[in-house]
Design a protein around this nucleic acid. Structure first.
Lengths: 235, 235
DNA sequence: CGACTGTATATTGGATCCAACTTTGCGTCG
DNA sequence: CGACGCAAAGTTGGATCCAATATACAGTCG
């Protein structure tokens, strides 16, 4: 188990994990001193890691009042999926044009990794491999900024992905759909690929609607804007 | 001149300005000690500000090697505009549906601000007002995350906007087009609004192609991914 | 003479310390 | 009894200090 070359990166990874594991809850202040001591580090690298999460929208920062995990209402989640729809469709369309032997091999390799993890009932690895699979599909688009935005969107909904993968039905459906996606990728059929990916995402959305249920849009902070807007000088 | 409530925000604003003013150049290490002393602050708030810029892609960070301003090739700039195309079209389509008296009033107010600044030959204010104008147009879409992404895309190309506004021809064209955009907004004609905004952006792109000229894609770092990818554990 | 290695220096990363602000609780006054 | 104001404690923000890493340079060996 190789640990990151720098403490902030270690802390960042730990924070992501803690948010995912619901050890840090929304609307509950993140006490820097306590978290830092818990990880055996000082507050400085913690604060730098929090700044990254702030910029990603994972936590909300208010000057002199500290950080809290971002509360996600159903509305927020639906927005994330709508953005993914838009961006991943674009990425997929561009990517198919560039699929060569190398790219397809990469995709199939990750596909097998997902299957393998599923057979071993290793949910954590299955989720990770699923992510690599999807990025292997989209990355050939050759648009690094686009990929970065997509990445943060995935991060935002990581906590809910775990719920989705808890169901065996969902897991086997994922595998089936991936199979079809791989076939379509081999054929370089862009339109069909976009369609399949859309349907694929849609299942997650449906599951979300059930899981999160009615939109209780807390009157507190909740909705997304957070950091960027907070830090910028103009509305 | 009210200064920000916290030092990091002051430093952040100063860094943005310095990058825009080409006081900090791409591929040239940002010496924290020197910059911090120059601003009369310690390195801590500087580092936090740099982390935000890193997450936005404005600077590149490499552990133990520090930060540099992100180098933008023509390819990178075109990617930014392509993303804006995608995202702002979506935002505009959604926004028109929600235009009410308040929203339109806000748009027209900013429109007048742009005209006013243009008449006073106040380029800085004209650029700022232009930005407020466009965001007033899009904000009613009610998608905070979408707006945030668009905001960072604007930030990325800020340096080049100054060049564009240097030309009196470009400035007067901006005013004319804004006029037409406002009319279309009042009519709530979504399709036409999207079309106008597209043409509006296209002029900036054309200007960019001339300004930046051939793509010299420096073999160094350059291309976009930077922070997010850098900091994440997986590709 | 070139390449490598070891060392010195500069720069970044992290820890500790102090200051500023926010919040909470108590007391007082209306 | 309620609301306002003040004071104390806790938490965040910033500065300084020390450690770790990378870079530059010089010396040495092939």
């Amino acid at each position: 188990m190789s640990r990151p070359p720098t403490t902030q990166q270690f802390v960042l990874a730990e924070l992501r994990r803690a948010i995912l594991a619901r050890e840090l809850l929304p609307n509950q202040p993140i006490r820097q001193d306590s978290v830092a001591r818990g990880l055996g580090v000082s507050r400085v690298p913690l604060r730098e890691a929090l700044k990254i999460l702030e910029a990603e929208g994972q936590v909300v920062y208010r000057p002199h009042r500290g950080y809290t995990v971002t509360e996600l209402s159903l509305t927020d989640l639906l927005e994330v999926y709508r953005l993914r729809e838009l961006l991943e469709s674009e990425a997929a369309s561009l990517a198919v044009e560039r699929y060569g032997a190398t790219e397809l091999e990469r995709v199939e390799q990750e596909h097998r990794a997902v299957i393998d993890a599923a057979e071993r009932d290793d949910l954590v690895e299955m989720i990770a491999a699923n992510r690599r699979f999807h990025f292997a599909l989209l990355e050939p688009a050759g648009m690094p900024r686009l990929m970065r935005v997509i990445r943060t969107l995935w991060d935002t909904t990581d906590a809910y992905r775990a719920v989705y993968y808890n169901s065996a039905d969902n897991r086997s459906r994922v595998l089936d759909e991936h199979e079809e996606i791989v076939r379509t990728a081999r054929d370089r059929d862009g339109a069909e690929l976009v369609r399949l990916l859309h349907a694929h995402r849609q299942h997650a959305v449906d599951s979300l609607r059930e899981t999160v249920g009615t939109d209780r849009q807390a009157p507190g902070q909740s909705s997304g804007g957070s950091a960027g807007a907070e830090t910028r000088t103009e509305p």
